[in-house]
Design a protein around this nucleic acid. Sequence first.
DNA 1: CCGCAATCTGCATTCGATTGCATTATTCTT
DNA 2: AAGAATAATGCAATCGAATGCAGATTGCGG
Lengths: 344, 344
Amino acid sequence: MPNDKITSLDVAKRAGVSQSAVSRVFTKGASASQKTIDKVRKAAKELGYRPNVLARSLITGRSRIIGLVVAYLDNYFYPVALQKLSNALKEEGYHVMVFMASDTTKDIERVVDEMLDYQVDAIVAASVPLSSDLAGRCRDEGIPLVFFNRSQDGDNLTSVTADNFAGGREIARFLAAHRPERIGYIAGFEGASTQRDREAGFLRGLEEAGREVSSRTVGNFCSDGARAAALAMFSAPQHPDAVFVANDHMAFAVMDVLRSDLHLSVPGDVILVSYDDVPPAVWAGYSLTTVRQRTSRMVEETVRVLMNAIETGEAPPVNIKIAGPLIVRGSAPAPLGWTNWAQV
Amino acid sequence: MPNDKITSLDVAKRAGVSQSAVSRVFTKGASASQKTIDKVRKAAKELGYRPNVLARSLITGRSRIIGLVVAYLDNYFYPVALQKLSNALKEEGYHVMVFMASDTTKDIERVVDEMLDYQVDAIVAASVPLSSDLAGRCRDEGIPLVFFNRSQDGDNLTSVTADNFAGGREIARFLAAHRPERIGYIAGFEGASTQRDREAGFLRGLEEAGREVSSRTVGNFCSDGARAAALAMFSAPQHPDAVFVANDHMAFAVMDVLRSDLHLSVPGDVILVSYDDVPPAVWAGYSLTTVRQRTSRMVEETVRVLMNAIETGEAPPVNIKIAGPLIVRGSAPAPLGWTNWAQV
DNA sequence: CCGCAATCTGCATTCGATTGCATTATTCTT
DNA sequence: AAGAATAATGCAATCGAATGCAGATTGCGG
């Protein structure tokens, strides 16, 4: 079966129609008689013809490629999101091209260039900061841009995130209800909106409960940083007995430090709450009490926004926030009289 | 700065040269005088021109897109590999397009079609079985195909995997040295070469030590399956006191069952070894003794094979096996007198 | 300063589709 | 059954770049 490069012309010849006819059969929205359709489909099947997406893109100006920029895939949250995003976009006839970006501005710029080279129809930036001029470049080129799990204010750009403020506040309410002696906060990367919003909500919640943070360290959303931050916070004699760790990924490291290095019991000596509800959070070894990110909903919204922007060509910036429930597990049991609003 | 679609022609005009000249400046391997190069580069910079990869692909016949087929991204091994693969290919000027495939044959077929539609230059199949005729299709189209972390024998196809047989055998040697009463094996998905090879190596190793498996259940490489398999194996009164779980992803679930549900101590009551050494394996909550998959090396080899196949146009099938060391951690301490060959 | 080779350059074609336009075949209306 | 409206079709141009070919330029040796 030597079928080197079957083109629409080959199919046309075999079906006894013009090349345009073949194209119309495979282009939805174009009209062709049933007779033609049948002949063409038959010939195409026999030859094993499938339209060349690249050639099509060239003339339609739509590549049906979505560029996804990610910095790390080692925080479980992102692979899960990627998987869902890829599946959801497949349904719409789009595909995801992955662009890893280190944190350097220079690198991100290169990545954006590469995406534009590929004529991506839209860009999803997952936890990667795009400078205003890069975002501007995209706008100029007419390429929709959605920030996933990060927002950038000031630039009025489109984003889809969890309702981090609300989540942080709920966590405060929850921890305060335990009436702990001292409350700690292990922060994520300071430049991230997730970090900022979670902390702001947390502080607000504590304030409402008449409490405050007695100890704060920074873990930068990475394991190493979290370990160091936990050591710093809990080596002190008067360490917190309740702590909010800004995401699950760090929480695992923090728990390891507490239990293995410092021989503190969780939740016996310290109760711990975090954010994301990634798959390992339910593993019995950790069993994290955490605020769930509703990844599926977030992806759904992302796709909706993208499709809309691509189809209408315009993209009034929106900031979509998706609230998620606090999932109570072993690392911090429900305090007496606790009502979980999310589940009411 | 309204720069809607700058083409090589625009640059040509501005630089006062022909369109071909512009093309030559951006096509490596083409010749142009330094003077022309300078003029064109200058004009291009001023206009913000970058070649359209899609148009280029159309005429060169190379898209510089690599199709990656994956079934699950929830086993940590794959995101890590994806990240490395994407980075390594970027260096070579290629990019990864992700295609999620469920396990159904029908779906995989659709996915292969989609990849061909995009004119991918090569395909990497990560733990996804491609039927012989699908593989044949790829060969006919002249598209290199590499199986990553799976091999398919009989079809003489190219693959890059760990040396699973050797790893399994090493694990057997290690467990046997502990002189346990009973040895268990929790298998992965029976259709997978990784499962087959790891078990074969394990059995061979046990045989060499004059031991055998007393209990075997199947976990199918997934968490739920592993939990069920562990319950079945360890609820019996005379359960094993040493177990090899076919990969880390399952091992986490198995440890949870052992410790939390059955109140067995690991490594006190049961010693446990698994395979992969994914990032959570080092988390103190689990601290798995496991055989490392040398992902970086595997990716390196994959890229090498791919580039070679793409450039030469021919791809004599090879099966690359990369051995990895047994990493001894808490779930199974080193037995007395143990020499770790890998580290000698 | 001439001739020949080597290097550049532009023209025109090509890759594989889509699509506006003009023409022809169908269907519908009454 | 005739004419109008509609659907189907083919022609040819187009998308944005790469490249074979032929002619122009340059360089070099003598």
